[in-house]
Design a protein around this nucleic acid. Structure first.
Lengths: 208, 208
DNA sequence: GTGTGTGAAGGGTTTCACAGCA
DNA sequence: TGCTGTGAAACCCTTCACACAC
């Protein structure tokens, strides 16, 4: 398969969400123009992004919202369940346990772990905190696909390695450092500090 | 000033954090190679990024960690305090109130609001939840610089407009839609759904 | 007529490679 | 010698513009 850019994937994810909204409002058809407007980009970009994966529209008409959502879902792998584990039962870990957008999109948080014995056995919504010292066996038992790192910075790389060692192939990292991983392991970072510091930059240096 | 790309700003933010780490470990000097290694990029990229703002290194030697951190801090506007307000006292809002990385970098969360009367007056760490119906006066009274949107998707655009109406010039949005804002207002999105869906894509479609 | 799909053009960011300075 | 700073080259992504299908 042709190499698709990360920006394209991220935009597909946006289109998917916009399509959900349209479907909720019983709108059956959408043009690349409308979709672009919703996501703050250009219509050419929308069409180009979709063209990498096939031809989904009807010339002169636009796209069928339900069909397109389904197709993008197939591309992104959202038409199945993913089993997710969270490491770290602090503020972020807790907030993620029942993050609505996860369950809605088929990301099933079925394990949360921590090393702190004070937190182990604690109940967080539907989950009981497990001991991260036994990470490998928990991960195996729960057949985890995606691991989320929500531990302090100093423990993040180590946690990543334990996850990989347990067979996890995809990691979402909330710690503000870049995780080192071998090829074949997929890592994405969610770094709120970067976003707010970018805002700080633009506030400091005028328009941008 | 020349137009600097968003990617450059985001990387500066990473260098800043890496420099903090080096300083903690009492390392005085760093080369672009080392910095690149820490952040998973190339040394040419590091040097190019810095070159947009001046010449900070010594040929044959590298960069002084403390001096460079200070300079990047100046560029990003981190050598001052920013006053931050959070709208929405749900999971995300709560988690952000005492997010360590914020206070460390001078982002002072001094106001949290919600429309839900059940939540108003509730205590979250050092803050009392205020009524979002009186957003404008709270924002003015607290002289807020940056607003954080942590409300449900359907309320996000409206919340953004209230924040802008109250004079807020920078918004960090946690809702999974793109906020529409006029030029001059800075909006950044933190969308965990996009990141995890990208992971889903790469897991589904092999290496990437 | 309307709006998609797409090659070609354009613009911007990253990488290369080396001159120059410590 | 070692490493920065930087034009030039390479690369990638976005935008343009239009043929074509409905």
């Amino acid at each position: 398969m042709k190499k698709i850019s990360d920006s394209t994937i991220r935009r597909l994810s946006k289109y998917y969400r916009s399509l959900e909204q349209l479907i909720e409002n019983s709108i059956d058809t959408v043009s690349s123009d409308q979709l672009a407007e919703m996501d703050g980009i250009t219509s050419a970009q929308v069409r180009k992004d979709l063209s990498f994966f096939g031809t989904f529209g009807k010339r002169g008409l636009g796209y069928n919202t339900k069909a397109l959502k389904e197709q993008i879902g197939d591309i992104l792998g959202l038409n199945r369940k993913w089993r997710v584990a969270i490491v770290g039962a602090g503020n972020i870990g807790r907030a993620l346990v029942n993050y609505a957008e996860f369950s809605k999109q088929g990301f099933n948080v079925c394990l949360i772990m921590d090393t702190d014995s004070e937190k182990v056995d604690e109940q967080i919504h539907h989950l009981t905190v497990k001991d991260a010292a036994k990470m490998k066996e928990h991960i195996k038992a729960e057949k985890i696909d995606i691991g989320i790192i929500a531990v302090p910075t100093w423990a993040a790389q180590n946690t990543a390695e334990e996850l990989m060692d347990a067979g996890v192939k995809a990691i979402l990292n909330f710690a503000p450092i870049s995780i080192k991983a071998p090829k074949g392991i997929h890592v994405k970072n969610e770094n709120t500090a970067i976003e707010i510091e970018a805002l700080s930059y633009y506030l400091t240096n005028g328009s941008g």
